[in-house]
Design a protein around this nucleic acid. Structure first.
Lengths: 197, 197
DNA sequence: ACCTGAACACCGTTCAAGT
DNA sequence: ACCTGAACACCGTTCAAGT
């Protein structure tokens, strides 16, 4: 599909696709616009027609990544079942995403100090937190979670699963299978959230 | 101090010092060996006398970073006071390090997929986990922490504080002051660790 | 032992010019 | 509208040569 219009048809989409392949294989360091152009058989200047600069391409990947993540989180949060099971599902979904797309996760939480486009990305990251906060608010109504600002408790929950993902991706879990580490983390987290302040 | 022998005296130390300044200011992306050489007034090839390549300089910074981190953690873990207070101190020390030296923290938990020298760095990261595991083992004896493999519980504890540091550095805490977010995280964590499995 | 200078093979980015 | 080719100012890394 996609009939080649000039040289490629949809160079933009091809660049993004190839970029994530390179990202998985060599990390963000090994990703160059000239390299992508070479891989796709176009001139080295062609990518700049579709992305202002290298960072713009990276930001586009990150945006897509947050889209996928937030979609998965919404599915987990909205599934059937009691609220504590949905909280567990939410945590697991995060860790699954983080380990499946670890190269992407790394750049999602890296270039957060860029001033310009960083604002949009921060808003997207925020959505993840808001999904967690919504579910925690629900859980507070059933008494499964202690009282308190749901946004702040969501920060705590996010910290737990994100930190675990970093350990897993960094190979610091030793022999512990990721699933077991995840379940233990979520068990401790939910026990802690449930306990009286 | 340090009399200039040829051009600089101790170029190696000067490179490391300048490198962390650049890291803080521009991140790992903006750090180039040629740039450092320019800043220090030496030829562009001079740095390769002291560091095999760019990654070697980065690894050296990371090693020093883990040294500092583990020193701080040991101090917090070994301070006077009941074990749960020391656990809190340990968590706070981690977050303080992570926010004070956030640029360094980023590269400490980034290039973890390098095959060669990564082994040494993983061992250093491990030390942090072992310090936490030791303290958790102590806390189990007083009944402050639930039974279970201290190494696995340390992974959970590490996840909580590391994840929080990422949120803080990434500007995702909204209005929440870091100290308050830290204390809430540690409160939830310790409550969760104390509860029966 | 430590540094220089030239060299090679890469980059990102811009810009006139082509189709 | 989309791409090319040359150009400019950068990189990392190597290697003979200097002191």
């Amino acid at each position: 599909m996609a009939t080649g219009s000039y040289h490629h048809g949809n160079l933009r989409a091809a660049l993004l696709e190839r970029a994530e392949e390179v990202l998985v294989k060599d990390g963000a360091v090994g990703l160059s616009l000239r390299g992508l152009a070479r891989d796709l058989g176009v001139s080295h200047a062609a990518p700049t027609r579709h992305f202002r600069d290298r960072q713009d391409l990276l930001d586009t990947l990150v945006t897509e990544g947050f889209g996928d993540l937030n979609h998965r989180l919404r599915e987990a949060a909205g599934s059937a079942g009691p609220v504590d099971e949905r909280l567990t599902a939410l945590g697991r979904a995060y860790v699954v995403f983080a380990t499946e797309r670890s190269a992407l996760l790394e750049i999602m939480f890296a270039a957060k100090k860029e001033e310009g486009a960083g604002e949009d990305l921060r808003r997207l990251a925020h959505v993840s937190l808001e999904i967690a906060a919504g579910l925690i608010g629900e859980a507070q109504q059933t008494g499964a979670v202690r009282p308190g600002d749901p946004a702040r408790l969501a920060q705590v929950a996010f910290s737990a699963v994100h930190g675990l993902a970093v350990l897993a991706v960094g190979g610091l879990l030793d022999g512990t299978p990721v699933d077991e580490a995840t379940d233990l983390t979520l068990n401790v987290l939910l026990a802690g959230l449930g306990a009286a302040p």
